[in-house]
Nucleic acid binder design. Structure first.
Length: 484
RNA sequence: GGCGCCGUGGCCGAGUGGCUGAGGCACGGGUCUGCAAAACCCGUUACACCGGUUCGAUUCCGGUCGGCGCCUCCA
């Protein structure tokens, strides 16, 4: 497959460093608040990438950190009269809880900064030994940016250009405005850990270097995160890691585009955030995932109620094809089909005239899907192929000229594709319909047979009012939960 | 000002040096249907602008305009 690398700014052939084992690190959240939809994008992207790599037969180790010590956490704690640890624990738990609801599984390792203080101190010491860092009079330790030749290679900035806008926060004791803190000496009332330079806490950038190297080794495969992390965060990570290792830190840098609202980045400072947990109250998880995977991970995407509604329509379409498939193959264990369509059953066994055509179509879609994903994880293109397959399946099922075995095969192919995209929820239709709703549906069916359409319509509305929808299928009807 | 990304039909969104212009949504017309829903078929004649390279550019190169991100905490 080919993957775009932000450092070289081109797509390159990607093969894992260790044959069949992919090592990747994504920057996770700083837990001082609930995460918003924009924060969820790299998480979704990393989990989809993991699924894709695994579908290629590779083993994946994905590490995604949780930053649980930082100025913002301390500020929040002080404002609320709590300890930084309490704040961090609360929002770390919330982060896990919220992302769990997305149903994509967890990264393999989710390391916390505060649990890696020894590794961080070791790394800082190495940098001091290598002449890349210095201890300031106040006990802070800074990275000496000028000592690292390649500084700016990721963000394509020249050091002298950057020096222009750089600022020094009061209380800092830098030799150069560009230098950044590796270790911050403790101020009164702040959480602190012992170190060779006195009590203090790690700077923001160093934890990712320390934990990435610890869990994935030197020169691991992929490092990802939002585009806005390129500078200074990832630039600094390179300086730290390569300054200590004297070798390449990462093979591919991947950066996802921003989530915008009204052409502006969703961020806490702008104040236009939409919390993931709020979004999950309004939309099913697969709708949010569909929204994300509908476009390329590197493109900025525009958040709006309309785009979410469209994602909802797409999910519904996908659901419908799986419902049709389930009916056809008779495995709709969870759905009701009182008037089991006999016509389909008879067309069931053995082979049928449409089998070959359907499988050809599905195979073509699968091929297109594979090519799209192999081209820099083009999930949007891949999703198009899923829909193409869905249409072919719907058409074949409508014609009823395919065997059950072939339909099942097509369903399996489709299931595999939606799984890679993180949309496997659409393949599961395990929703129970309460018996009283079924009774209403049965009553409606009787009313229809008696041509009492007024009563039939009334019952349909009654069912709708309770959150279900009754649909007619050949030879019977079925009840499904209403979408949205 | 510096660096980077991008500008596709009513909307969203893939993609490509020429061949039948993915896919979804919306809208219109059909098939099916008591109605509706679902589904299938057909239609709505796109590649910001100006140059250049080429037999041929939406696709490559240069410029213009416009949008976004980073340069400060930020996924």
């Amino acid at each position: 497959m080919r993957l775009y690398d932000s450092l070289t700014q081109k797509k390159r052939e990607f093969v894992p460093r260790d044959r069949d084992h992919v090592t990747m690190y994504f920057c996770g959240p700083t837990v001082y608040n609930y995460i918003h939809l924009g924060n969820a994008r790299p998480y979704v992207m990393s989990m989809v990438a993991k699924r894709y790599f695994e579908s290629l037969g590779w083993r994946v180790t994905l590490a995604e950190n949780i930053t649980d010590i930082d100025d913002r956490i301390i500020n929040k704690a002080q404002a609320e009269g709590r300890t930084a640890q309490e704040v961090a624990q609360e929002f770390a738990a919330a982060y896990i809880e919220d992302t769990d609801k997305l149903g994509l599984g967890r990264p393999d390792v989710e390391p916390y900064a505060t649990e890696h203080i020894p590794e961080i101190i070791d790394l800082v010491q190495r940098l001091i030994q290598n002449g890349h860092a210095y201890v300031a009079a106040n006990g802070d330790v800074y990275y000496d940016v000028a000592s690292f030749r390649d500084y700016g290679k990721l963000s394509k900035q020249r050091i002298d250009e950057m020096r222009h806008g750089a600022r020094i926060t009061p209380g800092e004791d830098k030799a150069d405005p560009l230098d950044f803190a590796l270790w911050k000496a403790a101020k009164p009332g702040e959480p602190a850990w012992d170190s060779p330079w006195g009590p203090g806490r790690p700077g923001w950038h160093i934890e990712c270097s320390a934990m990435g190297l610890k869990y994935l080794g030197e020169g691991f495969d992929i490092h990802g995160g939002g585009r806005d992390l390129i500078f200074p965060h990832h630039e600094n990570e390179i300086a730290q890691s390569e300054g200590a290792l004297r070798t390449d830190f990462v093979r591919f840098w991947v950066h996802n585009g921003m989530l915008n609202i009204k052409d502006e980045k969703m961020s806490k400072s702008v104040g236009n955030i939409f919390l993931l947990r709020e979004a999950l109250k309004q939309y099913p998880p697969e709708v949010l995932i569909c929204f994300f995977v509908g476009s390329h991970y590197r493109s900025p995407i525009e958040f709006s109620a309309e785009s979410l509604a469209e994602a909802g329509q797409q999910v519904e379409r996908l659901r419908n094809v799986f419902r049709a498939l389930a009916d056809y193959t008779g495995s709709a264990s969870d759905e009701v089909e009182p008037g089991a369509p006999e016509a389909m059953r008879s067309a069931a066994a053995g082979s049928a005239p449409g089998d070959e055509g359907l499988m050809r179509g599905v195979e073509a879609a699968r091929q297109g899907f594979a090519e799209a994903m192999a081209d820099d994880l083009n999930t949007g293109g891949a999703l198009g192929d899923v829909f193409t397959a869905a249409r072919e399946i719907n058409a074949a099922l409508g014609r009823r000229d395919v065997s059950v075995a072939t339909a099942a095969e097509a369903r399996d192919a489709l299931t595999t594709m939606v799984y890679v995209l993180g949309l496997d929820a659409v393949a599961r239709t395990g929703v129970e319909v309460p018996p009283e709703i079924l009774q209403l549906a049965a009553d409606r069916q009787r009313a229809r047979e008696e041509r009492n359409y007024a009563e039939a319509d009334r019952l349909r509305d009654e069912i709708a009012a309770r959150g279900y929808e009754v649909r007619d299928v050949p030879g019977g009807f079925k009840v499904v939960p209403r979408q949205g």
